[in-house]
Design a protein around this nucleic acid. Structure first.
Ligand code: MN
Ligand code: MN
Ligand code: MN
Ligand code: MN
Lengths: 218, 218
DNA sequence: CCGTAATATTAGGCTTGCCTAATTATTATT
DNA sequence: AATAATAATTAGGCAAGCCTAATATTACGG
């Protein structure tokens, strides 16, 4: 059984590896975890001994297969708990992350299996992020940033790349929800503002910054 | 916010205080928590500084009002989570304690409020133990040990004093469930075996040891 | 290729929560 | 009351995870 600290390292390393390719830097991990580099070096040596990461001194490190599977297990738990909090307990999507950060460290395979079944085996969490199955396999979803679409194209809003409360609340405010069909009506050349048509009814104008944080599928 | 270790101390002290009256001994706490006396003395000095316990060196200690309320808060969370695990996820009553031991340490008032509402404000947990309300108040329930009843008397089976899996499984096996109406048909003078009538249908014979672990109400 | 800046590691410490061994306090026994 | 047994505390240490300061390594501009 891994400690909560180890599990948080695993998640963070996984995230950085996904984003930036192979080798992860001490500095990047320290920044993501909000701790100092010396602490990261310390911990990585221990995790290396446990074969959770492959560590090359002063070069960088990456997850071993064992570490990768452990990381995916935590992510699975985090996202399933988020679904529970929103679907069953009625939390808003901007409120659940911090609680899930705690719940993801509960150790019980039986619990997570039963929770998964209770939630009817959800494929995505409240933010549109994919939930790996019990074997650690993610359903492949090909989505693109809304900011990459040209006027006239449309698709379904299926995820966000910014998970901050501020951003999620903003989306609530303008009435943009996961699953909405969105059509790019116009892209203003001057300031790159996007005019979007939602489900053919209302239209909203969002900045490039926002368009660049919305994931569109289909 | 208290650490999980502190919360476990609070719960244990509360339990001992309930069972044995006022002052709690270092040795009793050490035994209940499965740690050494020196560790308990250490921790109590810290918790005393935090005004969670009133500590009289070499005499004993007890919870302050602050400590008592904190302890009841943990018990409330533990029991609500047990209800969730049994009622919603389909765990058996003998499987939930260890998982609840972890879940009780999740810090979120909002979470526990919403969970309580989702479970429809249960008054007892799957073992018949009372769940304190949000203000820390227990509904007073006057129950007696089945072993204290004489032939002819009856009541409702509403709780157990032995929470072990072995005992709970045994009750499942003989078909005795929380809420059953139980009538004492006969008490064998020779070996103190109890012959019980369940809901007027089947009858079972249980030992004194068992009768002494069953709580009866009404 | 060299010096400097940026990255990373090492050394030494701290807090939490536990341990063992030694010492002191309390309680029980004669 | 003196002694023995039991309970409790103190002293000194350890592992996990963090920290700061010092040192080493790598990368980069000239
Ligand atoms: Mn999250
Ligand atoms: Mn999420
Ligand atoms: Mn329990
Ligand atoms: Mn219980």
């Amino acid at each position: 059984m891994h400690s909560s600290a180890e599990e948080n390292y695993l998640k963070a390393i996984y995230k950085l590896q996904e984003a930036n390719g192979e080798l992860v830097a001490t500095s990047a991990l320290a920044q993501l975890l909000g701790i100092h580099m010396a602490s990261v070096t310390d911990m990585l040596k221990k995790m290396s001994t446990k074969k959770l990461v492959a560590y090359q001194k002063s070069k960088g490190f990456k997850l071993t297969e064992k570490g990768r599977l452990a990381a995916i297990g935590i992510i699975r738990k985090h996202r399933l708990w988020e679904v529970f909090l929103v679907d069953k307990l009625g939390f808003r999507w901007d409120e659940v992350h911090d609680i899930a950060e705690q719940l993801e460290h509960i150790h019980s395979q039986d619990l997570i299996d039963k929770l998964d079944a209770y939630l009817d085996f959800p494929k995505t969490d409240p933010h549109g992020d994919p939930i790996p199955d019990a074997k650690g396999v993610f359903a492949i979803s090909k989505s693109v940033l809304l900011a990459a679409l040209s006027p006239g194209s449309q698709g379904k809003f299926t995820g966000v790349t910014d998970h901050s409360s501020a951003f999620l609340n903003y989306l609530d405010k303008i009435g943009l929800s996961l699953g909405d069909t969105v059509k790019v009506k116009e892209v203003e050349a001057f300031d790159k503002n996007y005019t979007l048509l939602l489900k053919g009814k209302k239209s909203v104008v969002v900045s490039f910054k926002v368009a660049n944080s919305l994931l569109i599928s289909e």
